[in-house]
């Protein structure tokens, strides 16, 4: 897990995060916003539709938008091929966690009687599934232009005997106690804490604080990608021609 030189099984240092790559280009499905995000070998695709009219009237609220999240895990995403249906308890729990994470973050009261659909497709799993889903969903929502109160940035932390590690791979996740923490970087508050393994309270405190700090580093990356994407869009709009404002257009002809 952590050798004498302080390196982990994939050659990272203790506090080193895996490479993050973010692609915010539209994915051809007509989604209003989409994001594909990788943390090392974990890859997640998210499409956001809406706010739009709900398919079922009964699912709408008169004062806010309904957020609907569906998660699908590809059968080939893990090393052992395994099909998980939509009724799988683990998937239901994951989508429930994501729903209750994003409902208070999205400014739903701006869109009464409408629905925001978020579809998440997990393509590869190598640890940090919840973390990747949260980060990718934040980016896709931002990409769709849906007003958010803040980013939600998540990161996984683990403990190997007494030394804390960040951003665990599947191998590490299976053997070490690990905790996923999601932070709203502007206020520094924590929205998600999820731990399913045995860990002493004192150790928990250490890794919990560390993960909170690491989430801020991820926030920088996420913010940069959103900014880059927007700049790229602005640049390509300008290269086509000046925006057709009334007076300018008249001057040209």
């Amino acid at each position: 897990m952590l050798n004498a030189g302080g390196y982990r099984s994939d050659g990272r240092r203790q506090y080193e995060l895996r490479t993050i790559s973010i692609d915010l280009s539209p994915q051809g499905s007509g989604a209003d916003g989409s994001a594909s995000l990788t943390h090392g070998l974990t890859q997640v695709n998210v499409c956001v539709f809406g706010p739009r009219e709900a398919k079922m009237r009964s699912q709408t609220y008169h004062d806010r938008a309904n957020v609907n999240i569906e998660v699908a895990i590809a059968a080939f995403s893990a090393s052992e091929r395994r099909k998980r249906g939509r009724g799988d308890k683990r998937i239901l729990e994951l989508s429930q966690t994501l729903k209750s994470t994003f409902e208070p973050v999205i400014q739903t009261s701006l869109y009464p009687r409408s629905q925001i659909d978020i579809y998440i497709q997990v393509l590869q799993q190598d640890g940090g599934l919840l973390q990747a889903c949260i980060n990718a969903t934040t980016l896709a929502l931002a990409n769709a232009g849906i007003p958010l109160y803040d980013f939600v940035c998540a990161v996984t932390g683990g403990v190997h005997s007494t030394s804390p590690l960040l951003d665990l791979t599947l191998l590490e996740e299976n053997d070490l106690p690990n905790v996923t923490v999601a932070v709203m970087p502007r206020s520094g508050k924590v929205t998600v804490v999820s731990m399913e393994t045995r860990l002493h309270v004192d150790r928990f405190e250490e890794i919990f604080r560390l993960a909170g700090e690491a989430a801020k580093a991820i926030h920088v990356e996420m913010k940069k990608s959103v900014r880059d994407r927007t700049e790229q869009l602005v640049a390509s709009m300008q290269s086509v021609g000046r925006p057709p404002t009334g007076v300018d257009a008249g001057d040209e002809y």
Binding site: G188, S194, F208
Partner: peptide
Amino acid sequence: RELCVVQKSGGVPLEPGDILKIV
């Protein structure tokens, strides 16, 4: 004092200090 599960899924965001106090 060994934690087995900590589960806070979404809802109102909290200060890290408050979470540790609750633990």
